[in-house]
């Protein structure tokens, strides 16, 4: 069950430092949107505010027609993948993934057998069959990332939020996972937002990209729209590298590298 996410005039200040200065964003059901920006631009704060991990000073987050403020974290049912994954280090992979199901109140908790079969199904989905008895410390970075994703998917989230999903991985693993995440998104169809500071990652992976700078969204659009009509001088310079590579790729008449749907 995927829902659209609407962000209305979100404001958040840390001490005297404004992190979000009236941010609005519409994400359609099933869409994959990147929040792109330099560090300190407010992208992670925006993601955490949508998740409910930060309380905004003003503004509103809507999941479908529901005001997120009326929901507890449990009721929000948001799958959140943390930058360093935040796997429970003292639990095996299977218990990590089962956590969200076991944490439910007794009345809505599935049976242990149902939980186990669900977990194994998810392990298969993230291609980690056979690793259920490992501890997080015994996994590679890419494997941990996929466990974190499986754990987030176990609660059947309304929305999937990923904070720098590839930030802690080396370049080669990063490329593979990017492709794999794209395929997974196509298969599961969750409304997904992910934070990144990597222009290539955003342009290659996302249906649409929201570019943030200094607590404001500067432009939202598909990769092609942004490349053709950068809204501000900041965006122009921020995506310069991509535009140049794009042009080079066209000159060499290579196939289009930017994914757009």
């Amino acid at each position: 069950m995927s829902v659209p996410v609407r962000v209305r005039n979100l404001e958040k200040t840390f001490g005297r430092y404004p992190a979000l200065k009236g941010v609005s964003l519409d994400v359609e059901a099933g869409e994959l949107v990147a929040l792109l920006g330099p560090s300190g631009s407010g992208k992670t704060t925006l993601l955490r505010a949508i998740a409910g991990l930060e309380q905004p000073d003003a503004g509103q987050v809507l999941f479908g027609d529901i005001d997120a403020n009326t929901l507890s974290l449990r009721e929000r049912r948001i799958g959140f993948v943390f930058q360093q994954y935040a796997l429970f280090r003292h639990m095996r992979v299977i218990d990590n993934i089962a956590f969200g199901l076991r944490a439910r109140p007794r009345s809505s908790r599935p049976s242990e057998a149902a939980i186990k079969s669900k977990v194994l199904e998810l392990l298969h989905l993230v291609q980690l069959d056979g690793l259920e008895a490992r501890y997080p410390a015994q996994l590679s970075g890419g494997q941990r990332q996929r466990v974190a994703l499986a754990r987030a998917l176990a609660i059947e989230p309304r929305v999937l939020l990923l904070d720098e999903p590839f930030g802690a991985l080396d370049a080669r693993v990063r490329k593979d996972l990017r492709k794999w995440l794209r395929e997974l998104h196509q298969r599961t169809g969750h409304t997904t937002l992910f934070v990144t500071h990597d222009q290539d990652e955003a342009f290659e992976l996302a249906d649409r990209i929201a570019i943030l700078d200094q607590g404001r969204i500067e432009q939202v659009g598909t990769a092609a729209e942004i490349l053709e009509r950068p809204a501000t001088p900041f965006i122009d310079s921020f995506i310069e590298g991509i535009a140049r590579r794009e042009a080079q790729a066209r000159d060499r008449t290579k196939p289009h590298v930017v994914a757009s749907r």
Binding site: G52, L53, R74, A86, F88, F99, A103
Partner: peptide, 21 residues
């Protein structure tokens, strides 16, 4: 606090998070 935040996002109560994480 990231493991606690992860537990809360997964729907655990504060007490459950304390005991299990």
């Amino acid at each position: 606090t990231s493991e606690e935040e992860a537990a809360l996002m997964l729907g655990a109560s504060g007490w459950y998070t304390f005991l299990k994480v």
